[in-house]
Design a binder for these strands. Sequence first.
DNA 1: TAGATTGTTAATCGATTAACAATC
DNA 2: TAGATTGTTAATCGATTAACAATC
Lengths: 214, 214
Amino acid sequence: MEEKEISKAVISRLPRYYRYLGDLIDAGVERISSNDLSQKMRVTASQIRQDLNNFGGFGQQGYGYNVKYLRTEIGKILGLNQKHNMLIIGVGSLGHALANYSSFEKHGFAVKGLFDVNPALKGASIRGIPICMMEDLEGFLQDHEIEIAALTIPKSQALEVADRLVKCGIKAIWNFTHTDLNLPEDVIVESVHLSDSLMKLSYNITTYKEEHGR
Amino acid sequence: MEEKEISKAVISRLPRYYRYLGDLIDAGVERISSNDLSQKMRVTASQIRQDLNNFGGFGQQGYGYNVKYLRTEIGKILGLNQKHNMLIIGVGSLGHALANYSSFEKHGFAVKGLFDVNPALKGASIRGIPICMMEDLEGFLQDHEIEIAALTIPKSQALEVADRLVKCGIKAIWNFTHTDLNLPEDVIVESVHLSDSLMKLSYNITTYKEEHGR
DNA sequence: TAGATTGTTAATCGATTAACAATC
DNA sequence: TAGATTGTTAATCGATTAACAATC
């Protein structure tokens, strides 16, 4: 083994490549050079070639890259060729939105259960996915093969629930709570901090105003 | 003028500082050294001091940083001391979730209108915010001072709607669509690509499995 | 004053870009 | 074969970390 570590910067660009290659397929494009792709994506051709060569030679000199093949390969690298079962913890409006988000399934992600503390939701379901009560979490995780838990609960409960999930052996947490979960190293955490994102937007507006005389 | 450009890496860390400082205030902490903060945030103390010194000297030798003061100052840098009026375009479940998200208001963001193409939603409202029809967009933007539009519509309509918004002089777009909007330079775009995030998660699961024998 | 801790310069590390030989 | 374009090495650029003098 002992593969060379791939940098986070590279990994975070892979989904974007995947997305653009999908668009190219839809547009009927069969092959593309790093140069053409670089113009579409507004990055350097050099970066594209460097990024891809972290994982092997997908192109061909004088020809470029086969779009379909390259997309499939990037998909494999991202693990999209495998099924990933998922849980959503917290059926507020954000949990609801994720549950409704059927297009995840195209990429191998399947929501198997929804959990909430609100007894009024007991027995209900979204897109056929049952809403369960939090006390049934441990039992559910024993009976089902679940890799990912999306956390869409209030900050105040985030740590406690995360700990319960980790105890049940969950592999990864997709964290939408407004806090950083400091979990054991072997648990993967990917956070989406919506308010952080909005604040960055706000920074850019503010800076722009200052530079252009309000 | 001619302030030195602040790097994106620094800016993207500011909301996180802001968040941690808020937690410290809640915990009753009055002052903190870069070293103590660095341990909480799991970054280097050096990075914290470097980051902050991009904007001026907020600390005091031998004392550290006053938590409340520092948070206020970072808030100002992020533009959170100002009101930012917002629109949500697309009242699907994600738009719905954002509309329900009242905690944005704490930081100066106010949702003034919701827009959709679905005539069934006409006249309805969420948290007192009216849902309007897309044909009324231009008129609404003339009558109201709106800086930000959150785009929670299907990819297929993203570009067209973005162009309309830009024509009306919108300053910034919070883009939740599955595409990159290539807009004029003076329009700020902050994208939240949920499926990109999920794919990164998937990559990490897959890599972890490979490294630890499946 | 002595101790603590910043602000800031210098050193290191990593990531991006440029260049070009290999090769389809 | 000639032209195009990759894979890859080398050069550059930027960001992070370390070190320490300034100073509260």
